[in-house]
């Protein structure tokens, strides 16, 4: 629906995202920080995965490496079966354009562009023809048909995030990443945003990976992956909010015990 009348390959089948032993190390004055420590995973097309874990466990790093916004120290990332060339920023950008959409916690809309202009920006940057009718349709779907010419500063947080979702979807990406997309929103706006993201999976067959701290949000997903100290430490299929909350409590307790054991 976000991309109409096109002969697209069947989206909801085959592996959409695959990570092979991905690590990401940062050199800092205090020594090497292992933000990601050998993460491997494979996600089917049309699936909805939530990623959870304590603060600093590497969730954002994982998303950025998988989305081509950051380059892993080692390991491979494959989107739609194509390996991400760990080359220059320009190469990574071109790789991302048709394959990957990203929704940030703080929206990251261009302050000088209107709602409509923000939503169509990725197409313009990719040198594609901008189909106004299609863009308006996307924005209508996220409930912003009457705000097309507003600037981001004139919108509420929830509205800005919906523009950001429209922008992430406009180029018809295979995989959409969202890093705490509801983190800066009130409950009502958060629910709207979640519903839109879910719709992108259920109706359009996009593959969605979402970092969240909220068990209720995570319960919308098909599965929840738990991350601690840069490693995948657990998986929960068919999650409910209660089960997710339980698992998170155990994980934070373990992490706390681990830190005590290490004498930190």
């Amino acid at each position: 629906m976000f991309q109409q009348g096109m002969v697209t390959p069947p989206l909801a089948s085959g592996q959409a995202l695959r990570l092979d032993a991905v690590t990401r190390h940062y050199e800092s004055p205090g020594g090497t920080v292992r933000a990601l420590n050998g993460v491997s995973l494979a996600l089917d097309g049309g699936s909805f995965t939530a990623v959870m874990g304590p603060s600093g466990s590497g969730k954002s790093t994982l998303l950025q490496c998988a989305a081509g916004l950051d380059t892993p120290t080692s390991g491979r990332v494959l989107v739609d079966g194509v390996e991400m060339s760990g080359g220059t920023e320009a190469e990574l950008t071109r790789f991302r354009r048709n394959r990957i959409g990203f929704v940030f916690q703080h929206f990251n809309l261009l302050p000088t562009l209107t709602v409509l202009q923000n939503a169509t920006l990725p197409l313009r940057l990719a040198g594609k023809r901008v189909d106004r009718t299609q863009a308006v349709e996307v924005l209508t779907r996220v409930g912003l048909a009457d705000r097309l010419d507003h600037l981001p500063a004139q919108l509420s947080g929830g509205q800005q995030q919906r523009v950001a979702i429209a922008r992430a979807l406009v180029a018809g990406p295979r995989v959409v990443f969202a890093d705490e997309p509801t983190g800066a929103l009130d409950t009502r706006s958060a629910r709207q945003v979640l519903a839109l993201l879910q719709e992108a999976v259920r109706i359009d067959g996009r593959t969605l990976v979402m970092v969240t701290h909220d068990p209720v949000a995570a319960a919308h997903a098909d599965q929840v992956l738990f991350l601690a100290d840069g490693r995948l430490v657990g998986r929960l299929a068919e999650p409910t909010a209660a089960a997710v909350a339980d698992a998170m409590t155990r994980l934070t307790d373990q992490a706390a015990r681990g830190r005590v054991a290490e004498g930190v």
Binding site: L69, E89, A90, T93, R94, R96, R97, F102, F104, N108, L109, L110, P111, T112, L121, P122, L125, A126, R167, A171
Partner: peptide, 15 residues
């Protein structure tokens, strides 16, 4: 910040 936002939206450094 604006340049970073452009890049995240899909602009290459050359653009």
């Amino acid at each position: 910040r604006e340049f970073a936002q452009l890049r995240l939206a899909g602009a290459t450094p050359a653009q």
